[in-house]
Amino acid sequence: MIEAHRLTKRYGPRTVVDGMTFTVQPGRVTGFLGPNGAGKSTTMRMTVGLDRPHGGTVTVNGAPYARHRAPLAEVGVLLDAKAVHPGRSARAHLRALAATHGISNARVDEVIDLAGLTSVAHQRAGRFSLGMGQRLGIAAALLGDPATLILDEPVNGLDPEGVLWVRTLLRSLAAEGRTVFLSSHLMSEMALTADHLVVVGRGRVVADAPVADIVARAGTSAVRVRTPETARLADALTRDPALRVVSTAADTLEVSGADAPTIAAAAAGAGVVLHELAPVQASLEDAYLQLTGGEVEYRAAAPDATAHARPTSGAHR
């Protein structure tokens, strides 16, 4: 369990974590989402005592991280930045870490195997590819068989097999009753892995709810209509200025601002035959973009990217 209470961090004049309060419960996977620079990595570093908060507290399994006598058994952490001397082999790195907690060499080999690094364990970590380095970081996090896992973008750089491995691993660790807290920018992956989400923007918590609730809150974003007479239907629908119609294929329109019955009635009125009329459920990505639309700090300049960050005014997927 991770409990953050009014956690605050400043770098110079900038407050990058601004009074965050949230609880990460055991027994489920909690995703940590937020735009670049929202303060996710900083929060994770403060949780394991690497950065000192300017205010507030954060505890892991009931105590500040530094109070635990065997911290690696409490928390396994993978940070966003490299945390390995490149001149040391993967095995030596893990053995040094294991030695601090009297963890056996057998366990070191076990996590090496678990992470799929057995064949390269003797190689210097500096030669590792991005994904191999990531696997080494995950192996280190698992070393002490911790009750809580904190992983900052764990699938970053992993191949599809690795992504699947992390997903099943994290789900099974949570099923064992452990606390799993991970950040990622891959919404589709997060939708598959996480049960619960803490969404932050500009250092503040903007949502803390189950994934299903967050997606449901985003609502049905559009209705997909298939018809051979798209032009006539679009004309009929756009008489109502509240409706927005986007053509997504030669015979398909996506309509937002109206529900299916309204669209069916309009079609009937215009004498247009419909082949399909289906509400499109918002994706986690849509929900996320709606939640954080106002919180994005580093927005791409291209106009279509801007539209993307404000999904209500643009095309839906």
Binding site: A70, S104, G116, G144, D145, L169
Partner: peptide, 13 residues
């Protein structure tokens, strides 16, 4: 692949 908890790991302070 298997999970981390194949064997109970002894971890000392």
């Amino acid at each position: 692949m298997t999970t981390a908890a194949v064997t109970r790991t002894t971890v000392q302070p």
